[in-house]
Write a protein that binds this DNA or RNA. Structure first.
Length: 445
RNA sequence: CGGGCUAUGGCGCAGCUUGGUAGCGCGUCCGUCUGGGGGACGGAAGGUCGUAGGUUCGAAUCCUGCUAGCCCGACCA
């Protein structure tokens, strides 16, 4: 993309409404614009990152054997009366009346809808196990939205639901989700620690929240510092293997890591003192096993081998897709702007032309642009007639991980400059080598 | 929902106390000079001062209602 043809309304000054760094940078980098309290338009740059995150979530869910679908944002209140949650949810649920006077609601979650689909179409144990998920906009009418997309009222979320014949099968589904979530976050450049949590209004027995450590986190967290040494890496995983998923779940959840809701001071104090950590975290996902709570209330059952009608065991699992943008920025930025991890960056590489209109530099930039594009990468070429300072400041703000700087001075010696946004380190090399280097970097992402 | 605050051009702000017909910086547009970290000079466009009403010869400014937004708390992914 050429910057002169793109829509990137960056701001030099910080809008007054933004308090935390991710919100400030998202506004300044032209990623979002507030439409009303807690509701945002996603401008092209923000939309691009949102889609990258969504793509990773989809890929990892499909890899784990889960099936994508899409349910509506507006739901009938009747289903929620059936589950008993229409009254439980309170003011946080946005209630709407249609022209016929029917009670509707903008869904804050989808347990009722998915259970309705399930019970209408699944009747036999042979159809199990089944895990369906979707990524859709949700709405929770927060009393006080704040922190930009981190705590908006409208938010984009992956939510999935597993249906299993037995508790054992359902726990395997739970473990699959834990593993697939670990992989997803790691691809986004995040360390999200699974912590034993409280099940809240969804209810249930087992639940883990995934938290990204950040000073601006909403939750106080207590953990054994050994958990931050764990990484999933590129290990092979067979999602059909109950033992393997179980082993990974245990590996990542045995060491002490809890939010303040479930914190146990005595257990915490058993950790060697030098490994005890108290910090803050941003919740970016949660998985639940809740047994037959919804299936019993809503009649979601199947016939087992003996012809008996039994309620299915269920779980649900969510990833806050839109919230993740905020979390990633909170975890990865400096005083100049965002630093995107390579897995979610809106463009792979920036190209800065230091002397727009100069025949040689223009030609060199065009060459780089064409070569990177041909290699399957998406460069952002700053071809504006701006001075160097302005171009650098924009690139730093929007946080592309790599920048190729092209100027007459370097070209005289046959080199361009490749700079890491994260470390600030630059190397001079030929244009061909710069392209090769960037291609190599992204080959592993 | 309790407490506090704000609303003036795309963004950040001043002007309000003491009413007299709106200003600054950034950004935008045009031109010239520039050209490796938000450059300089010259010109220009852009505002029913959130909204409704009141006081007054006259309201951005004083008074009242309403709306929207922000902060702290409680709540929440």
């Amino acid at each position: 993309m050429r910057l002169t043809r793109y829509f990137l309304p960056v701001l030099k000054e910080t809008p007054a409404e933004a308090q935390i760094v991710s919100h400030r940078y998202m506004l300044r980098a032209g990623m979002i614009k507030q439409a009303s309290a807690g509701i945002y338009s996603w401008l092209p740059l923000g939309f691009k990152v949102l889609k990258k995150i969504e793509d990773i979530v989809h890929e990892e869910q499909i890899r784990a054997g889960h099936i994508p679908m899409l349910m509506p944002t507006l739901q009938s209140a009747d289903l929620w009366r059936e589950s008993g949650r229409y009254d439980d949810y309170g003011q946080e649920m946005l209630r709407i009346t249609d022209r016929h006077g029917r009670d509707m609601l903008y869904g804050p979650t989808n347990e009722e809808l998915i259970t309705d689909i399930f019970r209408a179409n699944v009747t036999s144990y042979k159809d199990l196990p089944l895990t369906l998920y979707h990524i859709q906009w949700k709405f929770r009418d927060e009393i006080r939205p704040r922190f930009g997309v981190m705590r908006g009222r409208e938010f984009y979320m992956k939510d999935g639901y597993n249906f299993d014949l037995t508790k054992e099968d359902a726990l395997h589904a739970y473990n699959r989700h834990l593993v697939s979530y670990l992989r997803s976050y790691e691809r986004m450049g995040l360390q999200a620690i699974p912590m034993r949590a409280d099940s809240g209004p969804i209810g249930g027995d087992d639940t883990h929240e995934f938290l990204v450590l950040a000073e601006t986190g909403e939750s106080e967290v207590f953990y054994d510092s050994a958990v931050t040494d764990l990484t999933f890496g590129d290990r092979e995983i067979d999602y059909d293997s109950v033992e393997q998923c179980q082993a990974i779940m245990e590996e990542f959840t045995t060491k002490y890591a809890r939010t303040d809701e479930t914190h146990d001071e005595a257990a915490f104090n058993e950790i060697p003192e030098e490994r005890r950590r108290v910090a803050r975290g941003i919740e970016v996902g949660q998985i639940f096993y809740f047994g037959t709570k919804y299936s019993e209330a809503m009649g979601a059952s199947v016939q087992d081998k003996d012809g008996n009608k039994v309620p299915v065991h269920m779980g649900s699992h969510g990833i806050g897709v839109s919230r993740l943008l905020g979390a990633i920025i909170e975890a990865s930025h400096d005083d100049k702007g965002i630093i995107w991890p390579e897995g979610v960056t809106p463009f792979h590489c920036g190209i800065v032309n230091l002397k727009q209109g100069d025949g040689d530099t223009d030609a060199a930039c065009e060459g780089l642009y064409a070569a990177l594009t041909k290699a399957g990468l998406e460069p952002l070429y700053d071809d504006r007639n701006e001075r160097a300072g302005g171009k650098f400041a924009t690139m730093d703000l929007i946080g592309l991980p790599w920048r190729i700087t092209v100027g007459p001075r370097g070209l005289k010696n046959g080199v361009v400059e490749l700079t890491s946004r994260k470390t600030g380190e630059s190397v001079e090399l030929s244009a061909e080598d710069a392209v090769a280097r960037v291609v190599e970097i992204y080959a592993g992402v």
